Simulated assay, not measured.
Amino acid sequence: MTDTHVPATLAEFRDEFLELPEADRLELLLEFANELPPVSDEIAAHPEMAERVAECQSPVYIYIEVSDGVVTMHATAPPEAPTTRGFASILAQGLTGLTADEVLAVPNDYPQSIGLTRLVSPLRIGGMTGMLMRAKRQVEAKR
């Protein structure tokens, strides 16, 4: 896979996973789950603004803001769904601060590139892909 369109932060996250032995990668995912940035007060007060990610079995909601061409991704995922929460955290941290064009250029297969496909179910990887695709769709609509 080429790094042509993988933004630096997402590439760094991917490399962190791939440098670990496969057995230790879930632990790193749990660290990301604990680092999911809180949503803004506005989103917290108006949860209806966020979009449910139907591809996730857990109730995951995302909301994209584009201000002056810069993207901020807000995501919520329940603590009892640490895998999903970890994926949401990777994307929220990795997409926030990028331009709309940079977000739209993130490869759709990024979730498959971080070395977790043998450790978590295809359904969960599909959930992360769903989060990415919905984020891209919201960016496209708001830029």
Rank of each mutant, 00 (worst) to 15 (best):
A75L: 04
T76I: 05
T76W: 01
P78D: 02
E80N: 15
A81I: 08
P82I: 05
P82S: 09
P82C: 06
T83M: 07
T83S: 09
T84K: 00
T84C: 07
T84H: 03
T84L: 01
R85S: 00
G86C: 12
G86M: 09
G86V: 01
A88L: 09
A88M: 05
A88V: 11
S89G: 07
I90K: 05
I90Y: 09
I90W: 05
I90V: 15
L91F: 09
Q93R: 15
Q93L: 15
G94H: 06
G94D: 09
L95N: 06
T96K: 10
G97R: 06
G97K: 07
G97F: 07
G97P: 02
G97N: 07
T99P: 03
A100W: 00
A100T: 05
D101T: 14
E102H: 13
E102L: 09
E102M: 03
V103S: 08
V103A: 04
V103G: 04
L104C: 05
L104K: 10
L104P: 04
L104E: 11
A105Y: 01
A105W: 02
A105P: 09
V106W: 10
V106E: 07
V106N: 02
P107K: 08
P107Y: 02
N108R: 14
N108I: 13
D109A: 14
D109N: 15
D109L: 03
Y110F: 13
Y110A: 00
P111K: 04
P111D: 08
Q112M: 14
S113M: 13
I114V: 15
I114K: 01
I114P: 01
G115H: 03
L116R: 03
T117G: 02
T117Y: 01
T117H: 05
R118P: 00
R118I: 06
V120L: 12
V120G: 11
S121Y: 10
P122K: 10
P122E: 13
L123W: 05
L123E: 12
L123C: 03
R124M: 04
I125K: 03
I125Y: 00
I125T: 02
G126V: 00
G127S: 10
M128Q: 06
T129G: 07
T129Y: 11
T129P: 04
T129E: 13
G130S: 13
G130L: 02
G130E: 10
G130N: 10
M131Y: 07
M131P: 02
L132G: 08
L132T: 11
M133C: 05
M133Q: 14
M133G: 13
R134Q: 15
K136E: 11
K136N: 14
R137V: 08
R137K: 15
